[in-house]
């Protein structure tokens, strides 16, 4: 095992020295820090004015989401040509005739891509600390969100490296990596929305309302009326959202609530929205103006407590996808090669 790891370490060192530590990468990191600085500043100014002393949690959750957004935008470019790019440069085969096994090569490249994605997280640490200084940040929220974010960046890195082993052309594998990330981030939302809109249910609404007020001040009620209309059903499809990395992040993080049962950060708001989707709508609506009492609508806290978390399923799916693609990339890169991808040169 230690021999395996020392080989992985050599590949990692090689990757970091030659692929990642290029000037372009530093420029990217600089632009990124600038962007995140602007976002943090604007957020602190705006949230700071109306959230008072507890603006920190809102700012922190927004920065974490921003890191996830930029990380998933940058990582495919760093990882999506890890293996086939070397083949194009003519450096893959010369590595493969050494004592390095294909497993060590693939794992080393994956770790290198992950580490370089994590550098973006590391670069945002000062801003995260700034958010903590604003106050109101809970340690568990901060820790869990950072860990889940790191894992999600690893998933994107693994998808990129796996696809770069599986597909012959670097440009193609980078684009496919982007498409996979987009399918998870945006595709799940589109699927959820369209599937919900396509599934309509009929609501029967029974209601009466106060037409006027008599001389004693009591309402004069109208006759009971019945009406039917259709609404989209999202509750059968909430599972689709579980595969969304932004949802995984929101759902995994423990949520803090204020005195009114409202969440204090962006994670909590997203979590409430997603959990709400689990609750089937009431198809038999009764509305009585004259009954005098109205059941209060549930708070965010109540919704979250009534519904089930799905983040571990999402995270498991991501891990499965990442591991599967890495294994496929490994299998396609093994030597002596049995088959070659169309148009690829082994050297």
């Amino acid at each position: 095992m230690s021999r395996f790891l020392s080989g992985v370490g050599t590949v990692l060192a090689l990757e970091l020295r030659q692929r990642v530590r290029a000037r372009g990468w530093y420029i990217l990191l600089g632009v990124y820090v600038l962007l995140i600085g602007i976002v943090t500043l604007l957020l602190s100014l705006s949230l700071g004015t109306f959230a008072g002393g507890d603006a920190g949690s809102g700012v922190l959750s927004t920065i974490i989401y921003f890191v996830l957004l930029l990380g998933t935008l940058v990582t495919p470019a760093l990882s999506g040509n890890a293996i086939n790019g070397d083949r194009t440069d003519g450096t893959l085969a010369t590595t493969q005739v050494t004592q390095i096994s294909t497993g060590q090569l693939v794992v080393g490249k994956f770790v290198a891509a992950w580490v370089s994605a994590l550098a973006f997280l590391a670069a945002s640490v000062p801003f995260l600390l700034g958010a903590v200084l604003l106050g109101g940040v809970r340690a568990d929220t901060a820790l869990v969100s950072i860990v889940v974010l790191a894992v999600e960046l690893g998933v994107v890195a693994a998808i990129g490296v796996g696809l770069s082993g599986l597909l012959a052309r670097p440009l193609f594998s980078i684009v496919v990596t982007y498409l996979v990330v987009a399918a998870l981030s945006i595709g799940t939302l589109i699927l959820f929305t369209l599937a919900g809109l396509a599934t309509q249910s009929t609501v029967t609404s029974t209601y009466r309302y106060a037409e006027s007020i008599d001389e004693d001040g009591d309402p004069v009620c109208s006759a009971v009326q019945e009406d039917t209309y259709t609404i989209p059903r999202f509750d059968p499809y909430w599972g689709v959202l579980v595969a969304n990395p932004y949802v995984v992040l929101a759902d995994a993080v423990p949520t803090a609530f204020d005195d009114d049962g409202n969440p204090v950060d962006l994670f909590g708001f997203l979590k409430t929205g997603v959990r709400q989707a689990q609750i089937p709508p009431d198809l038999d609506v009764e509305y009585d103006d004259c009954a005098g009492e109205f059941p209060p609508s549930p708070t965010a806290q109540e919704i979250i407590e009534r519904t089930v978390p799905g983040w571990f399923v999402g995270l498991g799916l991501h891990a499965l996808l990442a591991g599967g693609l890495l294994a496929a990339g490994w299998s396609a890169t093994r030597t002596p090669a049995r088959r070659l991808a169309r148009g690829s040169r082994i050297a």
Partner: peptide, 15 residues
């Protein structure tokens, strides 16, 4: 036991 010099010239460009 074997050393191989390929016919295409690839090298790690920045090293």
């Amino acid at each position: 036991a074997m050393g191989w010099m390929p016919d295409i010239l690839g090298s790690w460009a920045s090293l």
